[in-house]
Structures are given as C-alpha cells and as structure tokens.
Design a protein around this nucleic acid. Structure first.
Length: 482
RNA sequence: GGCCCGUUGGUCAAGCGGUUAAGACGACGGCCUCUCACGCCGUAAACAGGAGUUCGAUUCUCCUACGGGUCACCA
C-alpha cells in the first residue's frame, strides 16, 4: 500500500491572495485529492517586519470561497500543529543546533554593515563565508559576549547536488553556486529556507508543490534533508503565471498587469468558480478530453501531475471574462438575480420590476461590474442626439422616426396590455399599416424610450420595464426633439 | 554577469518519429434578430534558427537566439 500523499499550501500572510498563489494552492490541493491524499494549510509568518493585520483571514476566506478545504491547518487543527510558523518558533532552534553539531551549519557574527559592504562589489558574489571556519573557542567567546548572530547552512564547496522534479525532471546544480544561506535570523526566527524544510518533514508532507521560482534553490533544501538524514519529498514545481504589459513584455504576473488578487477579481464581479476553472487551465490540460469546463470535483478526477506543463503561461483577462460570462449564463435565474441585485439597486432604485431587468441582463453580462453601464438609461433618460434616430439597416432618419412616433404614440396610449409580447404585436401591426419595416418602428421607439443606441433588450421589452406612463413620457419627449 | 528552466497561431494549448499540426479565447465574415447580446456557421493565424541522428523530424541530441527565473537576516 502506497503512502498517503500529503501536500500543503504555505502562503505568507501578505494581506491579499495573488492569483498565482491561488493557482499554486489549487494544484497543491488537486495533487493531493486526485490521489486521495491530505491537504494541509500552513501559515508562514516568520518575517516579523512584514506582518499585516487580518492577512490570515484573507487566506482563510479565499480558500473557503473557492472550496479548497484543508484537512489540517489553522482553525481546524490536526495532529501536526500548530500550523502557524510564528507559533512554532521554539522548535526550529534545536534542529539548527543539531546541524551545527553535525557540521552542516555554523554561527555567523557578521554585522549587516559588513554584509552590505560585501554586496557593494558586483552584487552577485554573495556571502564570503567569513565566519564559516571560526574556532570553537572564538564562537563560545562571541556567544558569551552576547554578540548577535545568525546560523548559516554550510554548503559543500565542491561537487553537485541533484534532485528529480516531477514536472521539470532532473535538476542539477554545482555546489559552488550555493550560498551559505541563513537558517536562523538574528531575531531568532527561522528563514523560509529552514522553516519550511523542518515543517514539511514534521508534518509528513510527501509532495512539495510550489512555484518554479524555487527550482534553483531546492538543491539547498535537499541538502538539508540529507544532512538530517530525512527522506526527501517529491518536488512539483509549477510554471509561473505571467502578465503582459502595454509594451507587450511579459514578466511574472504583478499589480501592473491589472487586478491580480482574488479579492480584486471577486470585487469586479468574477465568480470564484470561473476563476478556479480558468486558472486550472493555466499550466495544465486534461489528457483524454477537450473539455474546458471543470468544477473542483471534476478536476479531482481528471487531474494528474504528468499533465502539468513546464512553460510559463500568460494570464489572459479576455479568456477569464469569457469563462465568467459562460458561468453567468449557466447560473439558474434566481441565483443570478441575487448576485445582480446589489448592482440593480444601486443603479436603478426607481425601477419597479428589477427581476425583468435581470432577465434581460443574464445573457448580456460577462462580469457583474458592467451592469451599471448597461442599464443606467433605465433610471434616467440620458441626453441624446437626434442622430441616433438614423439607422442604415432599417432605413430610418429623424424625419421618418418623427412620423413613426406620431403614429405610434396614440396607438400605445390605447394599449391595455402593457406586456412586451402585446406591445410587440401592436407595433408590428402598426408597421404593416404604415407600410414600413417593423424594424424601423422598433428602432424609433427604442431610441426614444432608451436614449442610447445599444440596449439590453428590444423596444417592447424596455417599455414593459419602464411602464406605460414613463414610456409614453419618453416617447413624447423624443417626438418633441424631432 | 554566473547558474537553472523554457520556446507550437496574438493568448491558453493538443501532439509524445510518418497528422490536411486538434480544440478554446480573441480577431474577422456570415446567419438569426425588435438595437445589442445569446445561439449557429465559416475565415485568417503557429512548430524560434542552424547542425546532426533517422528512410523520415514539431517530436530525439547539440549549438545559437530569444524569453523567463534565481543569486536577501523575503517568502
């Protein structure tokens, strides 16, 4: 029986959930769940200078909204807690000590000033290993004198370190490339470099899933596992999510590329399911099907590490928009209405039948935030130019529209049944009587009633929503302009 | 700059030695139509370049170019 797969998502609480981070969470979750494994959430907050109030809640809320439920982690607990690194501070030092004793790490007393001076040079040299070979006596003396110190990993000077990545394959690095990185900082907190290795081991994580920016630092981590005599985890590095700027240059997706946090996207009216669906396809493609629509459950069934690709992918807002539109169209009407209601209330508080408006909107909206601009004219007839009455296809002109409105207004005033189908029949009959295309009548009426050239819904649908009184007032105002 | 990784249409991508090189978004055109949208139909658009290996390379190897990542008391 194979060992249970255990993955983790280990974000640092920065105050927002970057979309690339979310995708890492998704893949990490899926890699576990497609193999009936466990998914752990761990908060990596060892940088005391970058603590952000409420940042953990952002992470928790995002996972909740997207349905990425974790088996162990903050709030839910588990056998390997605590799951917040700052609460685990006490456990790292003894492992660091162990490494010092075995000759894999050492105390370093170099001051920040000295390190900065070293960096002055070409900037690529890194630490000069000044404290690497201090005598035991010297170290004791410094310690006794209360000198501040950090603990560094002692890298092999020669040879190479290699590991196998599940998506990128064999990665091999010359040890001479590896810096004697800091394991424990002067404030006593561990660095990511050290804490994640210790925690992954203690939490029995079998698959380390993270962005490919860690591809080249992983040899250092692998060396740590080896130094402790721990079994190395399986590594799955994920291709990066890129953004394209105005000049067409691509780079790691960031704020300058637009909305990049999950919160931003949700605020703009994107659905969590659509976001998840879209980002699942960035770097992964199902093997046996051309299907593009996936729920979290269907992803669990289809997902496989082997189908993850290596090349970075550009985040395409257009395609996300399309996905969102598709999800909106698939929503049942009540759910759509509920989601749209805040926008409707804000934009057209005076319109009685908001449900009818929602009905017109569902197939015409790709993201909720575009609702106001589409229906503003319902709240108040906008100022418009008579040139709107000119339409090539229906062969209308301001003059012809004037005639049409003259004929239409009295007819409409007589209408008892103010429903779209009834109104449509009336106007169609009128068109026949007047010997013009029904499209011409509809055009004149719709412009008069809406005051904008493009509307969600046709003339009679809009009239039904506006009601008889308002519609006629607008028609008469329109006629007066001509 | 050193090291690591990548490179199929504008974008996401299938392909895993022999194909008319899929599909999706976007673009464009058409149909439908009470404007728009939806829906339906269609068009244009790609294997970075050069050497090998092979009967045969988009697929394998090497080189070049380009792109990205990484070299913190950040993760």
């Amino acid at each position: 029986m194979a060992k249970t797969v255990v993955t983790r998502f280990a974000p640092s609480p920065t105050g927002y959930m970057h979309i690339g981070n979310l995708r890492t969470a998704l893949y990490s979750y899926l890699i576990a769940k497609c193999q009936d494994g466990k998914f752990i959430l761990r908060i990596e907050d060892t940088d005391q200078e970058r603590l952000v109030e409420g940042a953990v809640d952002v992470i928790l809320n995002t996972l909740k909204q997207t349905g990425l439920s974790y088996d162990e982690g903050p709030v839910v607990g588990g056998d390997h807690g605590p799951y917040i690194q700052s609460e685990r501070k006490g456990i790292y030092m003894k492992y660091a000590q162990q490494l010092i004793e075995s000759g894999h790490a050492y105390y370093c007393f170099c001051t920040p000033e000295r390190l900065a001076a070293i960096k002055e040079g070409d900037g690529f040299g890194g630490y000069d290993r000044h404290c690497r070979d201090l005598s035991k006596e010297q170290v004791e003396a410094n310690l006794a004198a209360g000198m501040p110190y950090v603990i560094r990993q002692k890298m092999p000077l020669e040879g190479t370190t290699a590991y196998k990545d599940e998506v990128f394959g064999e990665i091999s690095m010359e040890n001479s490339q590896l810096q004697d990185q800091i394991l424990i900082k002067a404030d006593g907190y561990p660095t990511y470099n050290f804490a994640h290795v210790v925690d992954d081991h203690l939490m029995e994580v079998t698959h380390v899933v993270r962005g490919s920016e860690y591809l080249t630092s992983t040899p250092k981590y692998v060396l740590l596992y080896d130094a402790f005599g721990w079994e190395r985890p399986v590594y799955c590095h994920l291709p990066l999510l890129m953004g394209k700027d105005a000049e067409g240059n691509v780079s790691k997706l960031s704020k300058r590329h637009g909305a990049v946090s999950f919160q931003d996207l949700v605020e703009k009216g994107y659905l969590p399911e659509a976001i998840i669906n879209y980002i699942a396809l960035l770097g992964w493609c199902p093997k046996e099907t051309n299907e593009e629509f996936f729920t979290l459950d269907s992803l669990k069934e289809q997902f496989s590490i082997a189908a993850i690709n290596k090349s970075p992918s550009v985040f395409d807002y257009d395609k996300l928009l399309w996905f969102n539109g598709e999800y909106i169209k698939k929503m049942d009407f009540d759910a759509f209405g509920e989601k749209a209601m805040p926008y409707l209330e804000q934009t057209i508080p005076n319109v009685e039948n908001k449900k009818a408006v929602a009905a017109l909107l569902q197939s015409r909206v790709a993201v909720f935030s575009e609702i106001p601009e589409k229906i503003g004219f319902l709240a108040k007839l906008p100022e418009y130019d008579v040139s709107l009455y000119t339409n090539k296809k229906n062969k209308t002109t301001p003059e012809s529209c004037a005639a049409i409105l003259d004929a239409a207004i009295p007819v409409l005033e007589q209408c008892e049944d103010w429903s779209s189908p009834a109104l449509f029949e009336e106007l169609k009959a009128l068109a026949e009587k007047e010997g013009v295309k029904s499209g011409a009548v509809m055009w004149a009426v719709r412009i008069a009633v809406a005051g904008v050239s493009v509307t969600p819904g046709g003339a009679t649908e809009l009239m039904e929503i506006l009601g008889k009184e308002e519609s006629l007032a607008r028609l008469k105002a329109g006629r007066a302009k001509l």
